[in-house]
Design a protein around this nucleic acid. Structure first.
Length: 261
DNA sequence: GCGACAG
DNA sequence: ATCTTGTCGC
């Protein structure tokens, strides 16, 4: 008797997450993180994968490094990749991490002086079913401080998108205001952050690795010109642009009736 | 059956 | 994730 399709894989992934989870550092480890104005912080990174409609397999993997505090692009790398793992909520890292790591390794090899001091990741960190989202996974495997920023609320560990949550959102007055996302256990898994004065819809910030929640929220706010922090906004923009222009252009397959036998 | 489902 | 036009507001 074999398990239903996919169940073995998910079980294996869960134990991998449990194993790596032990290595997450949820405190500030860098001097610049303690500084009121982040002095000493000069480079912030962003990573992302972009897709084309109807293609779940091919994607553009992107890494950008921005200067801090000016948020100017210092480095960008994009590469077409072919994914193997499916998207399953809670297991995003197994789909994306290998290619994000490769991009970080290319940077390390070619321009080590541009290594980011912190990486913004599109997705959650410890705000996750098993407290080990994409930002933690990439953080542990790369050894770099990482911050998870999700654009949508994952309902997890007793955190619900209910009326209470909505009224907490409504109470966020200005950019930088936040409220904690508290698990049933009492642990603060992350924070909902109003990232700018003009955006009412918050982003969900959580620790990836080697940074505290408080610092992660403060840093995220300081990297926001718009709702989404600049490193992630830049990387997503460039990846989408790359997909639409030169790099990813193949003729559509012509379907012939006689092939449909 | 119904709702939830980071990207 | 991606699609797509206009529209409202500063």
């Amino acid at each position: 008797m074999s398990a239903p399709p996919g169940e073995d894989l998910v079980n294996q992934w869960e134990s991998e997450q449990a194993r790596l989870r032990l290595q997450v550092v949820e405190e500030d480890t860098e001097d610049w993180q303690r500084s009121p104005d982040f002095s000493g912080l000069e480079r912030v990174g962003g990573v992302d994968l972009s897709f084309i409609k109807g293609d779940e397999v091919n994607a553009c993997a992107q890494l950008v490094v921005l200067s801090y505090p000016d948020l100017e692009v210092l480095y960008e790398d994009s590469r077409m990749v072919t994914l193997t793992a499916p998207y399953i909520a809670g297991f995003l890292a197994f789909r994306e991490t290998p290619f994000l790591l490769e991009a970080l390794q290319r940077l390390e090899r070619n321009q080590p002086k541009l290594r980011p001091q912190v990486v913004f990741v599109d997705g959650n960190g410890v705000f996750h079913y098993r407290e080990f989202g994409l930002a933690c996974h990439l953080g542990v495997l790369s050894g770099l401080p990482c911050v998870g920023v999700a654009k949508n609320l994952l309902q997890v560990q007793g955190v619900h998108k209910n009326e209470q949550h909505q009224s907490q959102i409504a109470a966020l007055q200005k950019g930088g205001d936040s409220f904690p996302l508290t698990a049933a256990s009492g642990k603060v898994l992350g924070k909902a952050l109003r990232s700018s004065d003009r955006s009412c819809k918050p982003v969900y910030v959580s620790v990836g690795h080697k940074i505290s929640v408080t610092t992660a929220v403060r840093l995220t706010h300081s990297c926001c010109r718009y709702r989404v922090p600049e490193p992630i906004r830049q990387v997503a923009k460039d990846a989408t642009k790359a997909l639409k222009t030169s790099k990813y252009r193949r003729p559509l397959k012509i379907c012939h009736l006689w092939e449909c036998a």
